[in-house]
């Protein structure tokens, strides 16, 4: 058995302590140890963005971050967005604008958008395009994703 290391982190506002293998990524720990499977796995090399989560306010590809690096961190995943059963404005906008087809890339898209809007609450369209440049959508619903993010920024969706 590989030696494990205990880490403590705050996930979606809930303190968690997990014994993690030193070679396991944050993605693996979220999905396999904490059963938070909303964060998706695809390329594992930081190119597709399906695994995007927010760590201490910054969006990261969780497939590239070792879990032990997240010791003590605040982690926000897609499961942490809806409060009291109500969709977050971004989630609602993705749904309303149709920014969802198969949905597999969507948690990552929404987390990247979340980080973008936190940093730049009123992005231009070009800034939105750039903001999700690291999130691939093979269904190609980029246009609706842009619309959803811009609508959220304008506060149209509540």
């Amino acid at each position: 058995m590989t030696r494990t290391v205990p880490i403590s982190l705050n996930v979606n506002g809930r303190p968690r302590t997990v014994d993690v293998a030193p070679n396991h990524t944050l993605l693996e720990v979220l999905r396999e140890d904490l059963d938070l499977t909303g964060t998706k796995e695809c390329c594992l090399v930081g190119e597709c963005g399906a695994c995007t989560v927010i760590v201490d306010g910054r969006s990261v590809d969780s497939c590239l971050m070792l879990a032990i690096e997240a010791d003590g961190a605040d982690v926000l995943t897609v499961e942490g967005l809806a409060a009291d059963g109500r969709l977050s404005p971004l989630q609602a906008a993705f749904l309303d604008k149709g920014g969802v087809q198969c949905g597999f890339c969507i948690p990552g898209q929404i987390m990247s958008a979340h980080a973008l809007l936190a940093e730049n609450p009123h992005p231009s369209r070009a800034e939105v395009e750039e903001g999700i440049a690291g999130n691939l959508c093979r269904c190609g619903c980029y246009e609706q994703i842009f619309e959803a993010i811009l609508a959220t920024a304008e506060g149209v969706e509540r």
Partner: peptide, 17 residues
Amino acid sequence: NRVGGIGRVTGSQQYVA
């Protein structure tokens, strides 16, 4: 709105993996 859309934006949609 897409039927099945809520699961897709909240991450609760279960794919095989």
